[in-house]
Design a binder for these strands. Structure first.
Length: 614
RNA sequence: GCCGCCUUAGCUCAGCUGGUUAGAGCAACUGUUUUGUAAACAGUAGGUCCCCGGUUCGAAUCCGGGAGGCGGCUCCA
């Protein structure tokens, strides 16, 4: 963030200087686009038979600094499009030539259905463009819309960060170029701060913390994108899922259970066969000729439970919930940590209701979402996705209109911050997406509520209405956390592994100072009482110094640790050590009788509080 | 799937351009120590240098293929 209006021009100029430096080093380089992005810039470059690596950055940066020191003036010039095209041909810049041809044809380089920012627009227009602009510094000339700063000396502080493959103009079928990323700021201080923030993000990377806190593991033998959860990680999963379930059970949802495979016939009926196509894991039966697949979603199964008996309008809404795992065969290059996996556990639910019940159902769901995001201390705002005038949508347009109004009413009833987008709806119904903001101010889309006018139809779901006619219910898909794995990937980084008491895999660690029969039994009684009260407690009786045992508890970010020795044995007063972020400021360490202490911790765990009361 | 980088002990990492028995810290184990709020001391054990193939007198090191990880692209939402 900077209030300097010059920053974009500065970054744009740096992209240009990057290209100039690359051309000095590799004269045969072909250039693509070099736009400004968040915090910096990039330039797409194709050098025949050369692969730039991070080892080359020093060399490129040195060259860039030379150009900067020379304070070369950026001179803007214009050429008619046709002249520009012959310039590109002479300069052997085929990518620029392609861009110019687009400019000539349509007045813009923005290919239809491609995103302007991604492409790095060099000009926009209404099809009447005649001249295109160039910027020249020293002996380097580049097609560019600008703006640039006055000369190469005015570009602030920068650093090349990484190089990655990127398809020319974002299309998979196009050749792949090398994208050089850099960051740039006005001052050295800002650059340093940015790099420090990056470092911080790296420190709380959920993959690193997952290992350090012993939460989840992977195995080459099991496969990519198939994480397994340790006892500690499983506590997190189950506590989150339990809360999500409780919140929905309070508003009338019932738990159901479905198997993880199905005959493909189910998805032929639902129409998902085509959509999920190559993402389906196939399961071969050796006993029958049936073809099975692992379920990539749960709704079709749930419709079978709904359809298992006749339903009256009095029975609606019928609400099912289930935390269950789906399997999607994602492309291997897209997998990473817990954020993209192939076994995805959803806190999924489906409502079958009448049209006039939609608003009420959504209102309740949003309230539940509010509760759970409050409990995990994340800010929420929502995106309402409506249909547009296009004809790719299924279902009665009148129904869409009514439903969209009901969604909006429900969002307003919950006082949620929201924005509306037309044309972002799914083909089968409008939806609400939840955007949660984490501690590093990154926004993540975690959960959605979606209306569905199509599957009830496909599956011939019905209920008998008041007048005895058969009607089709509306389906509402929702998940509060979305995928538990993805949620955890965000949440581990949000908290930096410092989980609130109700979620902490280990809530209390008892550190015994030395061995003696009296102390042993004192600690045994304490621990038994903690366990009886549902507190997750671990005892450390190892033959190590007290300091070291405390350190071990700190490293695991255990909320409470308790040193027990002669002193406690004599007085019966226990003084817990409270994890720093949980402690209420200004409160002195105080001591408690053991029943009192265990009782408080147990209460905190049950009430899902964020701060310690001890 | 595509482009690039990476893979050495349970973990974090050394190991120069191919050259003896591949190292360290932490963790583990054993012994001494019985400890008071973020790391006692000593010792022991631990390796198919990711896997398969090739080049070479000789491969952790070079080449090819595969697996896994990471950064992007494309997807996904």
């Amino acid at each position: 963030m900077s209030d300097n209006d010059n920053l974009p021009a500065m970054r744009h100029s740096l992209a240009h200087i990057t290209a100039a430096a690359v051309q000095r080093l590799w004269p045969e380089a072909k250039f693509g686009v070099g736009p400004v992005v968040k915090d910096g810039f990039y330039y797409d470059i194709d050098i025949p038979n050369v692969t730039i690596s991070t080892d080359d950055f020093a060399k490129i940066e040195t060259e860039m600094r030379k150009i900067i020191e020379e304070k070369q003036t950026f001179e803007r010039s214009e050429k008619p499009v046709d002249e520009a095209i012959s310039w590109a041909q002479d300069a052997k810049q085929p990518y620029k030539e392609e861009l110019l041809n687009d400019l000539k044809r349509s007045g813009t380089t923005v290919a239809k259905d491609l995103n302007a920012d991604e492409l790095g627009t060099i000009a926009e227009g209404d099809g009447t463009i005649e001249n295109v602009s160039f910027y020249t510094n020293g002996d380097f000339t580049d097609l560019c819309r600008g703006p640039h700063v006055g000369n190469t000396g005015e570009v602030g502080e920068f650093k090349l960060l990484r190089v990655a493959g990127a398809y020319w103009r974002g299309k998979e079928t196009n050749p792949q170029m090398q994208r050089l990323y850099g960051v740039a700021f006005d001052t050295k201080e800002e650059l340093t701060r940015y790099l420090e923030l990056q470092q911080q993000a790296k420190e709380r990377d959920h993959r690193k913390l997952g290992k350090e806190l012993d939460l989840f593991v992977t195995s080459e033998l099991v496969g990519s994108g198939l994480p397994m959860f340790t006892p500690r990680g499983t506590v997190l999963r189950e506590e989150l899922s339990r809360y999500s379930n409780e919140l929905r059970q309070q508003i009338g949802y019932e738990k159901v259970w479905i198997p993880h495979i199905t005959k493909t016939a189910l998805y032929e009926k639902s129409g998902h066969q085509a959509k999920f196509g190559d993402e389906l894991f196939l399961v071969k039966s050796q006993e029958t000729s049936d073809e099975f697949v692992l379920k990539p979603m749960n709704c079709p199964h749930h419709t079978r439970i709904y359809a298992s008996k006749p339903r009256s309008y009095r029975d609606l809404p019928v609400r099912y919930l289930e935390t269950t795992t789906v399997y999607r065969d994602e492309k291997t290059g897209e997998l990473g940590g817990l954020s993209r996996v192939r076994s995805i556990t959803q806190d999924d639910s489906h409502v079958f209701c009448r049209q006039d019940q939609i608003e009420d159902e959504i209102t309740k769901l949003l309230a539940a979402a509010n509760d759970i995001y409050k409990a995990v201390d994340m800010n929420l705002r929502v995106r309402l996705s409506y249909r547009d005038e296009g004809d790719g949508y299924l279902g009665d347009p009148e129904l869409w209109k009514v439903a969209q109004d009901q969604l909006k009413n429900a969002v307003q009833a919950n006082n949620l911050e929201y924005f509306e987008v037309e044309g972002e709806a799914a083909f089968y119904g409008p939806k609400i997406d939840f955007m949660a903001t984490d501690a590093l101010e990154r926004e993540h889309q975690l959960a959605t509520v979606q209306l569905d006018f199509v599957q009830p139809d496909r599956f011939e779901l019905e209920y008998v209405s008041e007048d005895g006619t058969k009607q089709t219910p509306v389906m509402i898909h929702s998940a509060l956390l979305g995928s538990i794995e993805r949620f955890l990937s965000v949440y581990i980084e949000h908290t930096g592994g410092k989980f609130p008491i109700w979620l902490a895999p280990e809530q209390l660690r008892v550190i015994q100072v030395k061995d003696s029969p009296e102390l042993d039994s004192f600690v045994d009684i304490l621990v038994a009482s903690a366990k009886e009260n549902g507190v997750r407690v671990v005892v450390d009786r190892s033959n190590e110094s007290v300091g070291k045992k405390i350190r071990a508890a700190e490293v695991l970010k255990v909320p409470y640790s308790l040193v027990i020795g002669e002193k406690e044995l004599e007085t019966g007063q226990l003084t817990p050590r409270v994890r720093k972020d949980l402690a209420v400021e200004g409160r002195e360490d105080s001591s408690y009788k053991s029943d009192e202490l265990i009782g408080s911790i147990a209460n905190e765990a049950r009430s899902r509080v964020q701060k310690s009361s001890l």
